[in-house]
Amino acid sequence: MINKKEFSKIAKRIFHAKSSLQNPRIMNPSREWGIGLLIGFAFFIATAGWSAQTYLSNKNVGDITSDSSQDEVIVYRASMVEAALKAYEQRNQKHQQLLNKTYVAPPVIEEIVEEDTVDETSTSSENAEAVLPEQSLEVNAEEVSGAEEEPSEPTEPVEVAPDVLLSE
């Protein structure tokens, strides 16, 4: 029969017995150094790559270039303006021609004086609309306009000779 003391001894032997193969607790300095350096080098390479990528992406950010696409398009249709001005210039010329069409060059003063006296007695009837050489505008203007006597001086847009004559 096993005593209590013998039983406890056996138990201690069982639990406190070391295995035959023990874990190696040997440090290999070169191996440990190699692993550490490898990790450090990899970390360095990764950081360098990220820095290079950041630099290359932001290298041209500070360059201020005149991008034409950002410019506001200013449209001035010069050809349209020129065409409009030309059209109105022609219109103005035609206007002047129409006004001048009714005018005749002023004759010699003596003839005008003689013809004025003749015209003052003539009526304004268009039946007497014979082609007379020259007549003064002032006389006929008085006959035609009647009470509405407008000054015969030309206004700014109409260039009229000072002495204008009306041809019939």
Partner: peptide, 12 residues
């Protein structure tokens, strides 16, 4: 302007 052109053109 138009009224000044009228006598020049011989119209009332």
């Amino acid at each position: 302007l138009v009224e000044s052109l009228a006598p020049q053109a011989g119209v009332q």
